[in-house]
Design a protein around this nucleic acid. Structure first.
Lengths: 103, 103
DNA sequence: ACTTATAATAAGTCATGGCTTATGAAGATA
DNA sequence: TATCTTCATAAGCCATGACTTATTATAAGT
């Protein structure tokens, strides 16, 4: 599976996005997430695995716990993808405006 | 289903993303897309329906054809979502730097 | 009018994915 | 050592979704 595919797929699920947003707000353990989210601990672990493979989060051992935090570079590729269309659309918009000026 | 959910879900499928990128490159009909993509015409129509409900594309009748084009505002919410974390991460990074300055 | 082209919808198949409970491994605590 | 916590993995269930072929509707061309 291509990397970009993993990134978009990881963000597609609402529960997983919620977990990501929690982790982005504050680094925390699996148990903490399980306490606040409406799914079981294994479900949390499974989501975190997907997020990790998409490089959206990192994990770090801390005794028996495992602390998850956001991966600062993880959203870079998403932004890059987005900017591709952003500039395209700006160019297209500009072209329309300039065509209108010709009239 | 919430709007944001539809947006992310629409972009999750690689085939659908490819269709979106084609349409973004040049406005075109369903048949044109079906010619270049490795799936059937109904599959294309189904994907376009999802993209349209996510407000990523628009359609316009042109005789028997239906021309699909990108919806310029469609990616706005995605960018807004992204920027939320972008500034968060910048703030976090700044905090780390300033803490380092204190030492 | 008849045929061809275009595209949407219906119905059915099949794989994937998100969830559960059960379990085991590794660390902390008594 | 024994227990408790934390977390990951295994296995199974079930809904969803991406695809197919078949069909229908509408418009264009002859």
């Amino acid at each position: 599976m291509a990397y970009e595919d993993k990134l978009f797929a990881a963000l597609a699920d609402p529960t997983r996005r919620a977990i990501f947003e929690h982790v982005a707000g504050r680094r925390q353990s699996v148990a903490e997430l399980a306490r606040v989210m409406p799914v079981s601990q294994p479900a949390i672990s499974q989501h975190l695995k997907v997020l990790k493979e998409a490089r959206l989060v990192r994990d770090e051992a801390s005794g028996a716990r495992r602390i998850y935090s956001i991966d600062p570079e993880g959203l870079g590729p998403l932004r890059a993808w987005l900017d591709r269309f952003w500039s395209d659309q700006l160019a297209a918009f500009k072209a329309v405006v300039e065509t209108a000026d010709d009239s």
